[in-house]
Lab assay of single mutants.
Amino acid sequence: MPSETPQAEVGPTGCPHRSGPHSAKGSLEKGSPEDKEAKEPLWIRPDAPSRCTWQLGRPASESPHHHTAPAKSPKILPDILKKIGDTPMVRINKIGKKFGLKCELLAKCEFFNAGGSVKDRISLRMIEDAERDGTLKPGDTIIEPTSGNTGIGLALAAAVRGYRCIIVMPEKMSSEKVDVLRALGAEIVRTPTNARFDSPESHVGVAWRLKNEIPNSHILDQYRNASNPLAHYDTTADEILQQCDGKLDMLVASVGTGGTITGIARKLKEKCPGCRIIGVDPEGSILAEPEELNQTEQTTYEVEGIGYDFIPTVLDRTVVDKWFKSNDEEAFTFARMLIAQEGLLCGGSAGSTVAVAVKAAQELQEGQRCVVILPDSVRNYMTKFLSDRWMLQKGFLKEEDLTEKKPWWWHLRVQELGLSAPLTVLPTITCGHTIEILREKGFDQAPVVDEAGVILGMVTLGNMLSSLLAGKVQPSDQVGKVIYKQFKQIRLTDTLGRLSHILEMDHFALVV
C-alpha cells in the first residue's frame, strides 16, 4: 500500500459497493488471473465517493441489488447463522422517566444476534452475496479491517462455511474481542490505534497488504460494500417497522461504517417519512454534520465500534436529520445504567446512543415513540467499562463513588512517597548505550525526554532486548525507535489509591 493515498477510480455505471474482489474501477472485475494482476490496485480507499443510485421515491424494481426479506425461524435451526436477525424490541421503562421523557422509549437489542452484535447481519450478508456472485469459493481466505464486531461476525460465518479468516484490528480494541476471535479460529493482526486510516500501518493498510500477498484472499470491505446497508434496509428496518406496527417518530443510532443508519433510515424514509433520524458520533470522530460539531482538541476516545477519521463510502449522511456528539463518560455511564436499571447487557456504544436519545427525544410528546439501536453486548468489555477499576483509572468514576473498604494508605498523596527525580535518556542515544546505562543503574525503564525536557515516551529494558533479539533494531539504532509513546501519567497530588489502580493494569506510571 502506498504512503500517498491515490484516488480510487470510478467506473461508468453500476453501484460502487459490489461485493467481491475490487477492480481499479471499484466494481467486480472478471477475466484471467493475468488481467486481474495487471488491473487490481494495491488498495482502494474506504472513503471513495459513493456511486449508489438510491433515491427517495425511486421504484424498488430499479435497484441493481439482490434483495432479501426477513424469514421466520424454524423450530430447529440448521446452523447458528440462522440465529442472525429477528432481534427483540424491548421497552426501556426507567431511564426515559428518569430523564423526563414523555414518549415511549424502545430498544432494538442487536446483541441477541448469534455473534453478539449488529455486525453479524452485514457479515453474513457480505459472505452470502460474495458466494452468490462467485467471488468467494471453498478454501478462500477472508481478510477484514475491523474494530472487532464485524470480525467476530465474519469469523463466526467463516467457521460454519469453512473459510480461512484473518482479522486486522487496532490495538485499542478489547482483549475479549481478541479472545472470541481466536476461539472462532480467526487469525488476528493488531495495528497502532493512532495510525491514520490511509497510513500503511493502519488496520485498513495492513489488511490490503495481506490481501496482495495471500492468494485467493478477499477483503469484503464493510466500508464500501453495498451488502452492509442492504442488510439493514432489507431486514433490520423491516423488523423495526413490523415490531412497531409502522408507528415510530424517531430513530437514534450510533454511527461507525454508517451501514446501520443508512440502511434503516432509507427504508424508514420510504415507509415512515415523518420519522426523524438521529445520528450519534463520538467526540474525536469526524462523521457528524455540520462540520463545526467535529471541532475539538480530542483525537482519541475509548468507546469502541463507532466514529472514524474518514467518511466511509457506505455512509449516506443525507438521510440523517440531526447529529449529536457523545463523550466517553456519558457513554459508559449510560451503558452501566442500562445494565443495572433495565437488565440490558449492552456495550458502550449503546450507552452513547441512549445518552443522546434522552436529549433528542425531549421534543417528542406522549403517545409518540423513539427507537434506539443497541449494537453489541457487554461480553466484549468485561475488563473495560464493566470494571470499576478501569473506570477509575480512566477518570470516568471517582473514588467516592465506590463504597468498598480501602487499605490505610489509600488516600495518601503520591508526594508522600518522597520520590527522587528519575533517570532520563535522550532519544538520540543508541539502544546499546541505553541498555548499558539501565543495567549500570539497576533500572528496568526510563523516560525519554528531548533537550527541552519534554517527555516523549518510555523505554524499557525488556522491550529493547526483545527488539534486538527479533532483529527489529540494532544496538547502533537510536533509542527513539523503541519508545512507548502511550503511558499513564500521575500527579504528586493524586492518591496512592489512584496509582494502585493504574499499576494493576500497566507496568509503570510516570509522575509529573
Results as ranks from 00 to 15, higher is better:
residue 194 N to K: 13
residue 85 G to H: 09
residue 139 G to L: 07
residue 190 R to P: 00
residue 40 E to L: 15
residue 45 R to C: 03
residue 224 R to A: 09
residue 180 V to K: 02
residue 39 K to Y: 03
residue 110 E to P: 01
residue 196 R to Q: 11
residue 119 K to R: 05
residue 226 A to P: 11
residue 59 P to I: 14
residue 227 S to R: 07
residue 13 T to S: 04
residue 33 P to L: 08
residue 176 E to C: 03
residue 157 A to T: 13
residue 71 A to I: 14
residue 215 P to S: 05
residue 194 N to I: 10
residue 103 C to M: 01
residue 50 S to T: 08
residue 193 T to L: 09
residue 55 Q to H: 15
residue 194 N to L: 09
residue 256 G to Q: 00
residue 266 R to G: 04
residue 113 N to P: 01
residue 34 E to R: 03
residue 62 E to A: 13
residue 212 N to P: 04
residue 231 A to R: 07
residue 240 I to G: 00
residue 179 D to A: 08
residue 3 S to Q: 10
residue 116 G to S: 13
residue 251 L to W: 02
residue 4 E to Q: 14
residue 168 V to S: 02
residue 255 V to G: 05
residue 51 R to F: 07
residue 6 P to S: 12
residue 124 L to A: 11
residue 135 T to S: 04
residue 181 L to E: 01
residue 156 L to V: 07
residue 16 P to D: 08
residue 71 A to H: 11
residue 225 N to H: 02
residue 55 Q to C: 15
residue 107 A to E: 07
residue 176 E to W: 00
residue 184 L to Y: 07
residue 264 I to W: 02
residue 53 T to F: 08
residue 95 I to G: 00
residue 188 I to R: 00
residue 218 H to M: 09
residue 214 I to S: 02
residue 248 L to W: 00
residue 68 T to E: 11
residue 121 R to E: 02
residue 125 R to L: 05
residue 196 R to C: 08
residue 85 G to L: 02
residue 2 P to Q: 13
residue 216 N to Y: 08
residue 90 V to R: 01
residue 235 T to C: 12
residue 28 L to Q: 09
residue 145 P to Q: 00
residue 53 T to A: 11
residue 179 D to F: 01
residue 153 G to F: 05
residue 84 I to S: 09
residue 83 K to L: 08
residue 247 K to T: 13
residue 175 S to T: 13
residue 103 C to W: 06
residue 178 V to S: 05
residue 122 I to M: 06
residue 171 E to I: 07
residue 233 Y to P: 00
residue 5 T to S: 13
residue 228 N to P: 02
residue 79 D to E: 11
residue 28 L to P: 09
residue 147 S to W: 00
residue 51 R to W: 04
residue 205 G to K: 09
residue 206 V to S: 07
residue 164 R to V: 07
residue 140 D to E: 10
residue 91 R to N: 14
residue 234 D to R: 04
residue 196 R to K: 13
residue 246 G to V: 01
residue 217 S to G: 09
residue 94 K to I: 05
residue 141 T to A: 15
residue 28 L to D: 10
residue 8 A to M: 06
residue 186 A to T: 05
residue 228 N to D: 02
residue 200 P to M: 12
residue 69 A to Q: 10
residue 160 V to T: 05
